[in-house]
């Protein structure tokens, strides 16, 4: 009898550990204050580069860098050019690239010479409408609201040249809300229909069924055999097994205004330090680690 009780107890403990993996997610810190002590206001994006976090503090029209422990280092608005910055990433030669909505352009900021070049993107006579950018292996990927797809761009001299735009063949197609570039291919989240599209390196296109239970997904991340989807309405991150149709494993986070809670979340970004969650409403970016 006692052996049976012991077995039950162990079983219960195992179940507790593995059925509640949300426990395993731990908030490391929040990036919420600039070097001058002011709070972030409507941050829209964040990334990690060479041992530092970078945040686009859109409401305050500045970019802020933080060290690996979340201490603010520097806040800049190069040349006063930032009026509605949306996203940033580091390109070749360490240049900083920013999506500037007010100009419908990409700003290439050369930190060493403190110069800024403005790039407007065109493809087949149409001007693109950039929303998010990713630099990967000397190639720039831009989420374009004009086509709803992802533009593949290369540097030609000092200029950018749009090679092609990936717009899925599937119809109706509403347009992507977010995308992530990985070694194996590109993952993108479609608005309204909540479908996930995948484009492999060899050009194979897959449509994954919409992940069930979502109301207003705004961002996705793919890492470690899992898909993470951020729902702005439910204020949760849903974690799915990376298979089609995506099988929900668990969700974590909840609505609220305190640290560790979400109000108007906007973006997920996986970094070597953990998962960055950008919360526009609460004016902070939080780093989460763990997750069994």
């Amino acid at each position: 009898m006692s052996r049976m009780s012991q077995g039950l107890l162990i079983g219960f403990l195992i179940l507790e550990i593995f059925s509640g993996p949300a426990w395993a997610w731990k908030r490391v810190f929040s990036l919420e204050i600039g070097p001058d002590g002011t709070r972030l206001y409507h941050p829209m994006s964040a990334t990690w580069e060479k041992g530092r976090f970078y945040v686009v503090d859109t409401g305050n029209r500045r970019l802020i860098s933080y060290d690996a422990n979340g201490r603010p280092l520097k806040a800049v608005n190069p040349g006063g050019k930032l009026r509605a910055p949306l996203d940033l990433d580091f390109g070749p030669r360490g240049h900083l690239w920013v999506v500037e909505r007010s100009e419908n352009a990409l700003l290439e900021i050369v930190l060493s010479t403190r110069t800024i070049r403005v790039h407007r993107l065109y493809y087949r006579g149409k001007e693109l409408f950039p929303e998010r950018i990713v630099w990967r292996k000397s190639k720039l990927y831009v989420l374009d609201r004009e086509s709803g797809g992802v533009a593949f761009i290369k540097i030609k001299g000092r200029e950018l040249e749009v090679e092609r735009i990936w717009v899925p063949k599937e119809r109706p197609f509403i347009g992507f809300l977010d995308f992530k570039v990985k070694d194996e291919g590109i993952w993108a989240l479609e608005k309204t229909f909540h479908r996930i599209f995948y484009l492999s390196r060899d050009g194979r296109e897959e449509i994954w069924s919409p992940a069930e239970g979502l109301v207003y997904p705004v961002s996705l991340e793919v890492d470690g055999g899992r898909i993470y989807i951020l729902d702005r309405y439910l204020r949760k991150i849903f974690v799915f097994a990376l298979k089609n149709p995506p099988k929900m494993l668990f969700s974590f986070l909840e609505m609220g205004w305190r640290p560790g809670q979400l109000y108007l979340p906007r973006e997920l970004e996986m970094t070597p330090k953990g998962l960055l969650v950008v919360d526009e409403g609460n004016g902070r970016v939080e780093l989460w680690t763990g997750g069994l």
Binding site: A84, R101, E146, S147
Partner: peptide, 27 residues
């Protein structure tokens, strides 16, 4: 084609779409 069809006359509306939150969509 696309949004230019409308913006050719409604040029003043373009600026309204060049804001952080926008309804600019796929054409």
């Amino acid at each position: 084609t696309g949004a230019k069809m409308c913006l050719a006359c409604h040029e003043d509306r373009r600026e309204e779409f060049l804001r952080v939150h926008t309804h600019y969509m796929r054409s």
